[in-house]
Amino acid sequence: MSQTNAPEAIRTDGLTRYFGSEAVVKDLTLAVPRGSVFGLLGRNGSGKTTTIRLLLGLLAPTRGSAVVLGSPCTNLSPETRARIGYLAEGHPVFGWMRVAAFGRFQAGFYPTWNEDVFQGVLRFFQIDARRRGRDLSRGERAGLCLAATLAPDPELLVLDDPAIGLDPVARRGLLEALLYVTRREGRTVLFSSHVLADVERVADRVAVLDRGVLRACCTVDAFRERVRRVVLRFSGAPPTLPEIPGLLSRWITDGELRLTIANYDAAVQRILEGLPLERMTAEPLGLEEAFLDYVGDRGERTFFLQGRRAEA
């Protein structure tokens, strides 16, 4: 059991999964520190769900390995699985099962089931225990799933897009529940999400997957600090840009060139200052904008608006 006290709750090494000849997760190497709230970001189809399934041993990796709570992911013992709470995407519940029966069903698998927590989350989401799964609204279903996931008091909570389809109130409830988990020492949360506001609120660290490749893995603050928007103002027409390392996107408006640059540093600054500039300002971005530019299409973006203006 000494292994279980490793500083990371999850560590992957070259984790790769192919579907046919297509690599859905490619050479993923990352570590989720114990006690952290870890956000897994990426566009649809970037391999988030596949990564989570690989980590939980629901899919066999084509190559590479992962260690979850000290056990290899391909061979998670029931004891290790009992320490992991998993919320599958889309909040699946059994439609015919009543809420109370669902609780009893799940409780039967977990020796550490805490009925107070289950009832508490149900109360929080105002779910009547006599209702059937299929009659619940999306938010209530999420609440039920969350209750069932939290009740065994998991050491590691893995949530696959928990905010999907939730209204703001339910989403807020979800975040509160996440924070509730981290109240206990050494509890780790890994969640994937599209909702950047949620990530900004609760995550310590983020990993960004882009078409199966890990592009970023750092703290939330590091991510937003290291993606910078630089606005260059030229007196005349913008010159052709030299090679700028870390350039994510550029946006040309009248006499102005807006660049989004990852890992903005002095070297980049020198390159930019070498241009015939009128003025240059560099500013940090909001997490959402940073993410948009980060995983959006790379390269030049010009709005058709500009084309219209040229015609006029």
Binding site: V37, R172, E176, L179, R201, V202, A203, D204
Partner: peptide, 17 residues
């Protein structure tokens, strides 16, 4: 830190920082 984090629904580490 804990109370403010729960009040604002943000990560306690953010409040701590």
């Amino acid at each position: 830190v804990r109370a403010l984090a729960e009040q604002l629904v943000i990560n306690p580490n953010t409040v701590a920082r």
